[in-house]
Amino acid sequence: MKSNKPELIVNNKRLDGRNFDELRPLSIKAGVIDNASGSAYVEWGNNKIIAAVYGPKEAMPKHMMDPSKAIIKCRYAMSPFSNLSEHGRSGPSRRSTEISKVIKEVFENVVFLNEFPGSEIDIFVEVLQGDGGTRAAGITAASVAMASAGIPMRDLVYAVSVGRIDDKLALDLNMIEDNYSDSDMPIAVAPRDGEILLLQMDGGLSREQLSRGISMVLSAGKDISKKQIDALKENYDSISKKYES
């Protein structure tokens, strides 16, 4: 937490006028990268993120190949111009390496890896513009990209973060809230029966706040899932129109 914390709550509303359990505006478009097997573009608040999936294809390098199932590789990266502050360094940082790892583990859970022995599936998450909650937005996008690639999954994962500002829990923190919040907890969920596939947290939370925070994430799922499914339907409609004409 940085010093000189600004007032994040004014008249019981958040700085951007949201209620505490309100998501930022979210729009998802599937099928944005022609070369990819599947892709999605997400605008979530001021976040602008592209996710693309390539594969299944032959696993490389050979020693990483698993003859019994597909392996998943993931790259999460922020563009050097993604931040309001200074020019970011390109290339993997320790932060992006950790996030890539936890995103990879989310998809290892839901993809039917046994369907594609000996192959690899690549997930690329490129944060073009970041405004807090990029890993959650990236997972939500990657999930749509994976589905639009036609890769079988047992569920359509979504993710969103919940944080604590003073004594209030707030859903979907933006960058300012994230920088000055007292706690931040990104969570990824397989919504069918509420399995939690990614959970990270730092700051301070009581047990009661933890329970309430997870519940807020679970109830926000309906809206996010609907946007994901709508994006996929729209993509299929536009593809079938292309072939009809």
């Binding site: 939690i196 596939l197 990270q200 947290m201 009581s206 047990r207 933890l210 329970s211």
Partner: peptide
């Protein structure tokens, strides 16, 4: 008094109820 950090790892999952119980054990 407070949970200070959490990290879930590997490809499996936890349910909310399980997490709440494990946090209790952690305390």
């Amino acid at each position: 008094s407070s949970i200070r950090s959490m990290q879930k790892g590997l490809r499996g999952s936890f349910y909310q109820k399980e997490i709440e119980e494990l946090v209790g054990i952690s305390f």
